[in-house]
Design a protein around this nucleic acid. Structure first.
Length: 226
DNA sequence: GCATTAACCACCG
DNA sequence: CGGTGGTTAATGC
């Protein structure tokens, strides 16, 4: 069972559930501490659970045919990941790695599916979450490799702070510029240059190993072609 | 020309 | 000290 405080921090979706369902969810949640660099999941793992980030940062990545590791996106505090495999009872199709020490909440698959079968508010949340992620990947297809690196990075960073995928209101995150580069699909040097330009334009502020967002909408629309 | 990798080094915590 | 980030040189698209 997860403590009330951590549950409240991580499971924003539970606010809309009935008291009994919220209780059921909390009783069936456990906690796990991942040291920096540790894998929460490997591709093809069969783990029947859904994962929320209490604090810290995860990255989702896949290994391409040529062996290259491709980072797709990051999951920050209050973000949830892995519902697809729980719904379909399928093995995982990506790796999940902690970018720094990260505290995870786990909801077991049985409880997840029970909520799906019995709680309309939970379903409403799921549709919203899946729709938002679909929007993320459709947008990603649109960017392709066509946009300017600064524009691509601005959008990747904006997704990291998306208020639907990460409903906590935090606009600061401890993440290195190298990792921002990986998430944005570019080298550390190019990411650093893009970040400094966005900082100069007042959209964000850089600190050592940390980024603070000043204008989330501005980042999401940066370049304005989409 | 612009991005990438690799290397070097200075700075921060 | 280790991690982070600024810079540069060589190479590729």
């Amino acid at each position: 069972m997860l403590s009330e405080a951590k549950f409240k921090t991580v499971a924003h979706w539970a606010q809309d559930l009935s008291e009994a369902d919220r209780d059921l969810a909390r009783r069936n949640m456990s906690e796990k501490l991942l040291p920096k660099g540790a894998y929460l999941l490997h591709e093809n793992d069969h783990v029947d659970a859904w994962f929320g980030v209490i604090d810290g940062l995860l990255k989702i990545c896949v290994v391409a045919e040529n062996g290259e590791a491709i980072t797709l996106t990051g999951i920050s505090s209050s973000g949830w990941v892995g519902e697809g495999s729980v719904i379909k009872n399928e093995p995982r199709r990506y790796d999940v790695v902690a970018l720094r020490d990260t505290r995870i909440a786990l909801l077991n698959g049985r409880t997840f599916r029970w909520l799906m079968d019995n709680s309309p508010p939970f379903n409403k949340f799921l549709v919203r979450q899946l729709n938002e992620r679909l929007g993320q990947f459709i947008a990603f297809l649109g960017y392709g490799r066509l946009l300017d690196p600064t524009e691509r990075l601005a959008r990747s960073v904006a997704w990291l702070f998306n208020p639907i995928l990460s409903p906590n209101n935090q606009l600061q995150l401890g993440i290195s510029q190298e990792e921002i580069g990986l998430i944005s699909g570019m080298s550390r040097q190019t990411a650093s240059k893009a970040l400094r330009q966005l900082q100069a334009e007042g959209l964000l502020r850089l600190q050592h190993g940390r980024i603070e967002i000043l204008d989330l909408d501005g980042l999401g629309q940066y370049g304005s072609t989409l």
